[in-house]
């Protein structure tokens, strides 16, 4: 119990005193997960809308793939990206400038995109499918293009889309296995909150680990608070 209290105290002290090590990690966590969320939503929202609004051959298969992806163990996504980017892997040997190198923040973003996209697409699909079909018919009757119809339906389903973003963010913010594998937990480069907690626990620095944990918990709380606030205004 004394360890926990001392840890909480030390964690808060580090946070409030602007400890550069801690803040560097917080900032990088924000950058990596933020970038992954943007890319994941640019891919996932249109994909979810497409699947929820249209019928095409192979749609069932894509749906099944997305549901599988939603339950994908994140560390498996990490392994996949590792095998993709390794210098002895699939894309790594090509040595192209736009392919991220292993042990860089970009590689971590890629792994997180792979984790978050199916979640965003899946929840968006469900939200879009839940919109009253009459709305669609009305907009179509007004002579809207397919893109305009999709836009109108997405607007109507915005709460569900927001939930999909929160689910995506929650999954990558709290994930440790994949980012450890492809990021390598390098200080000042690929160390994020979850991998830092793992390291400090391993080192026996429980106070710092708890401090980082408090920050992670706080961030997660803020994200969800923001989401519920937006939801309230949307009604």
């Amino acid at each position: 119990m004394a360890t926990v209290l001392a840890g909480l105290q030390e964690g808060l002290r580090l946070l409030l005193s602007g400890d550069p090590y801690l803040w560097d990690i917080i900032l990088r966590t924000g950058q990596v997960t933020g970038a992954a969320l943007v890319v994941g939503s640019l891919l996932g929202i249109p994909l979810g809308a497409l699947l929820g609004l249209t019928r095409f051959p192979g749609r069932r298969l894509v749906q099944t793939l997305i549901y599988t992806g939603m339950g994908l163990p994140p560390v498996l996504a990490g392994l996949a990206i590792y095998l993709l980017l390794s210098r002895n892997g699939i894309l790594g040997p090509l040595d192209l400038p736009w392919i991220p190198k292993l042990f860089t923040p970009e590689a971590m973003v890629l792994a997180q995109v792979l984790i978050a996209t199916p979640l965003i697409a899946g929840f968006t699909m469900a939200a879009v499918a839940g919109v009253d079909p009459d709305l669609r018919r009305q907009v179509e009757a007004l002579g809207a293009t397919r893109l305009q119809v999709a836009w109108a339906v997405l607007r109507e389903a915005r709460l569900g889309v927001l939930v999909s973003l929160v689910a995506g963010l929650g999954s990558i913010l709290s994930e440790v296995g994949a980012v450890m594998l492809v990021g390598g937990n390098i200080e000042g480069s690929t160390r994020v909150l979850t991998t830092a907690i793992l390291l400090e626990t391993r080192r026996g620095n429980f106070d710092l680990a708890i401090g980082l944990g408090v920050v992670l918990l706080g961030l997660s709380f803020l994200v969800n608070l923001g989401a519920t606030q937006l939801q309230g205004k949307g009604r």
Binding site: G30, Q31, G34, V39, S41, V109
Partner: peptide
Amino acid sequence: TRRGTLLLAIGLVMLAGCGEATPTAPPRLI
């Protein structure tokens, strides 16, 4: 919505920051 645009803008700024965080100038020694 305007709020959505704002969120997207924040995300893009973060994305840009991410690129800056890894200057490629000095060779990495892993």
